[in-house]
Design a binder for these strands. Structure first.
Lengths: 162, 162
DNA sequence: AATATTGCCGAACGATATTCGGCATACAGG
DNA sequence: CCTGTATGCCGAATATCGTTCGGCAATATT
């Protein structure tokens, strides 16, 4: 019974460790997730089903969070990227603050250690729209100030690589 | 001749405008790029080949920059996300600065208007690794200071949505 | 030493991607 | 207003890929 319980627990809860082949696969998929398992197999010296099995496990274990289309900001009417540092009285993480996540212009929200409380990464059509967004940030109770850093140019923008 | 030249130029160079159906498609793909054209067709009231044609055009025109696997930072050994503001003497955009893009820990690099010159978004295993990375930033000629904002928690992290 | 587990592969099957011809609609030019 | 061109859509067909499965080998566990 103990053994069985242990086995059940181990099988259900413990994700497999990520090995070197996994890392290479993850690197390839982080770069381009449209590659076929045949192509990936050639690059990893594995057969397509073997790659498929690994990818399946990496998705199941949450190492691959999602497969998404990365869009071009300007092409979809969001040419202005900015980082907004939000200072709040007290802790800052409130329902109203978290509700800002529902705004399409807000792409990232991090609580930080430092001389700000929250950092938002936002993407809007223009400075007018940034101002409108800031108005919504100021409407959150407890917000006492913001500092905006408008990206003039972007030299790199990608997600994590292993 | 004029007409022909105009036609050739229009066909080759002008990306099609992005219409409302395109925007909906982009939203679906930005959220989950593994959906089949059959599924997308149901959601958009189009046939699979019609969706396929639109997606192909959006990729060709660069509206969809790439299709990528979004990885979980902690799962690949990068549990610490930070934003590093880099102050430089003079303009800041130099070969050495841009070379920081080659570091796997550096995910974003933006030149900004404000009281910093460059903002880097970085992801590293731990504070020790952040320190090592900062050492490499300081090694860039012209860098006179940095301010790091360590993300304590991340409440939202995604790319652009139309 | 025996058994169980894990990972890989070839083959097969199911599902999807992609192409193509035809049709309808909209727009531009005469 | 008429004609021609361009564009987008669809059904059907074809090509390609994803996924499953049984078998095998290596490793780990008992």
């Amino acid at each position: 019974m103990d053994v069985e319980t242990k086995t059940v627990r181990r099988r259900a809860a413990a994700p497999s460790p990520v090995d070197a082949v996994d890392r290479k696969l993850l690197g390839l998929l982080a770069e381009d997730a449209t590659r076929s398992y045949a192509e990936l197999g050639l690059l990893l010296n594995l057969s397509p089903p073997a790659v498929h099995e690994r990818a399946k496990r990496l998705r199941r274990d949450g190492v691959i969070r999602a497969t998404i289309a990365a869009l071009d900001g300007p092409a979809i009417g969001r040419a202005l990227t900015a980082f907004v540092h939000v200072d709040t009285t007290g802790w800052g993480k409130s329902g109203a603050m978290l509700a800002l996540r529902d705004l399409p212009a807000v792409e990232e929200m991090h609580s930080v250690a430092g001389d700000a409380c929250m950092i938002l990464k936002v993407r809007v059509p223009d400075t007018r729209a940034l101002e409108d967004l800031l108005a919504q940030v100021y409407a959150v109770p407890g917000v006492k100030g913001t500092r905006s850093y408008i990206a003039l140019n972007t030299y790199l923008e990608r997600g994590p690589r292993p």
